[in-house]
């Protein structure tokens, strides 16, 4: 079970059953609610702890059925993660591309750059993908409606999608 930072570790729901508790914390963290909670502590990424700051907000959206124009996705991912629509601490997404691939993108504020990974799933080249894709952003003062709008502005129309899909199907066939 994965517990997001937004859950209260003292919640009876989380303490009422037998389990092995693991805390993944930044290096050199001497004490934290996570370590107090855990049976085992693992050193993870060097992210800033935000205990003394305002609690960040978490925003997520499903994008299932949407397929992205790749250069637009690259542009808005860069804009979002560099703080154009609010300070972002963490962003992760699953995005469909016109060649049928499903990619995972990850950004952590304290770590350099973003990570990209193509998931090992079948290429979807028949209409709009009927499998989950979506995005999650953790940060402060997020302009949620603008983020949603630029995501949609970067998605392909039915016409553009079918053109891409017939092109890729031909390429694969030849």
């Amino acid at each position: 079970m994965e517990l997001g930072f937004y859950l209260d570790l003292r919640s009876p729901l989380l303490t009422s059953f037998p389990c092995h508790r693991v805390a993944v914390v930044p290096p050199e963290t001497e004490s934290s609610p996570w370590q107090n909670f855990a049976d085992e502590t693992v050193t993870g990424n060097s992210v800033l702890s935000f205990e003394s700051e305002q609690f960040p907000q978490i925003w997520n959206t499903s994008l299932t059925g949407q397929v992205f124009d790749p250069p637009s996705l690259e542009t808005i991912w860069m804009e979002i993660t560099s703080g154009a629509y609010g300070q972002v601490q963490r962003a992760k997404g699953l995005f469909e591309l016109p060649d049928g691939a499903l990619i995972q993108m990850d950004f952590v504020d304290a770590l350099p750059g973003s990570e990209y990974r193509e998931l090992n799933v079948p290429r979807w080249l028949e209409g709009r993908p009927n499998r989950f894709s979506g995005m999650e952003v953790v940060g402060w003062n997020l302009e949620e409606s603008t983020i949603k709008q630029i995501l949609l502005d970067s998605c392909l129309s039915d016409h553009a999608l079918s053109q891409y899909q017939s092109y890729y199907k031909e390429t694969i066939a030849s």
Binding site: V24, P26, G44, V47
Partner: peptide, 22 residues
């Protein structure tokens, strides 16, 4: 890691919980 029936993973955002689970 003995054989706990349930493992609960917690930590700050971006610390690597999903990575550890993976």
């Amino acid at each position: 890691m003995s054989s706990p029936s349930l493992i609960v993973v917690a930590g700050p955002s971006g610390s690597g919980k999903t990575t550890w689970i993976s």
